[in-house]
Write a protein that binds this DNA or RNA. Structure first.
Lengths: 208, 208
DNA sequence: ACCTGAACACCGTTCAAGT
DNA sequence: ACCTGAACACCGTTCAAGT
């Protein structure tokens, strides 16, 4: 009989009306966590602070995600999915593959720096390699794969590289831009990022 | 009279004989901390683990360094001082500036990867920019300055860049190599580092 | 001079309990 | 369904006390 009452009470608290704000909590957690991780990395992602940003207690995070590792993996996955969508849109908006390639550094890596000197979440977590749970590592690597793949195709389309060497070239471009973002962050200096990209163009690494 | 006794006891414990191992503790702390920071960064530098590596208790670290910030600053300072010495030696050993430039990526950044997939301490800490104490930030930036300065001079000596644009070129090379090391670490794949450096050469960023 | 144990406020995580 | 307080072992740091 006591069990029946508890079941009744529980059923009352079930359903959509428990979440009056239209936005769901999981979304809010993911987007808040992304911002924190871009500035402080996986190790610096503090669950009490994150919960505070969302407006709940740290313990409540464990209702939505079984562990910090799973939360971070979800964040990293969402991150490369968004990047893939953005790159797809960039390709469709551009008139030709060359314009596409010229926009790439600013539309992706420069944007993070513009927002509070943040950096690419995947780059930060790559540095934290030794401390990353396996599921997080996997998603972080996928981010690099997505970028390299996209660059590789763009280079081929622009006839800058042959199918044979477009991948190596794409990797080189990606790595160099990652490094440029890191240096610029270290001085909180977006102009330095721009100067580095210009230098890559002048040297021939990036198409002018 | 009690004070006199204490002073006497203290004097007994003073002097070199308290440190039977020839090596001094401060040195051991610095080198152990360097290794940890290259793998886990500033945030991941755990004082209890560090103390354990050295063979003392965490509280004892505070006898040698007033805070974690000061310890990390000393580590970072030592790091760029050692790098400066290594670069100086590299220059003296090389027959010409071009050979010097060709050795640069392997003698510096590749070496870290060879040792347990570690990375440049300064690169890691640059990612941690937002969480870095000011004194640490300063030393980390000096590491980049030292490298860029050295590269800049080497580029001029090799007549690859004019005094006018050697600095921008040096910065671009440094940033690109930093990025290459990060990517290679993210796959624990030294061959990837080598491939990236080769691609930089093929594109014209690095002298062939 | 050099080291330590015990204590502080903090971290990720768990869990029983609340609505 | 969703959230919480209290507890756990851990972190950086302090300090009085030891040799």
């Amino acid at each position: 009989m006591l069990g029946a009452i508890i079941a009744l009470v529980n059923s009352f608290y079930r359903g959509e009306r428990m979440n009056p704000s239209g936005e769901n909590a999981k979304e809010k957690i993911l987007s808040a966590a992304t911002k924190i991780a871009q500035a402080h990395g996986y190790g610096g992602l503090n669950l009490r602070n994150l919960a505070g940003d969302v407006g709940i207690k740290a313990a409540s995070l464990y209702y939505h995600f079984p562990s910090k590792a799973d939360l971070a993996a979800a964040v990293a996955r969402r991150y490369w999915e968004d990047a893939a969508a953005l790159l797809q849109a960039l390709k469709e908006e551009s008139r030709d593959p060359l314009e596409c390639l010229r926009k790439y550094p600013v539309e992706t890596f420069r944007k993070s720096l513009e927002t509070d000197n943040r950096m690419c979440l995947a780059s930060f977590m790559t540095a934290e390699y030794d401390d990353l749970p396996e599921i997080v590592k996997k998603e972080v690597q996928t981010f690099a794969d997505v970028n390299v793949e996209w660059l590789s195709k763009a280079l081929q389309a622009a006839k800058i590289a042959t199918p044979r060497d477009s991948k190596r070239r794409a990797r080189a471009i990606f790595a160099a831009i990652v490094g440029a973002q890191l240096m610029a962050r270290g001085r909180s200096d977006i102009a330095l990022f721009d100067a580095l990209i210009d230098a890559y163009r002048a040297s021939g690494l990036l198409p002018a």
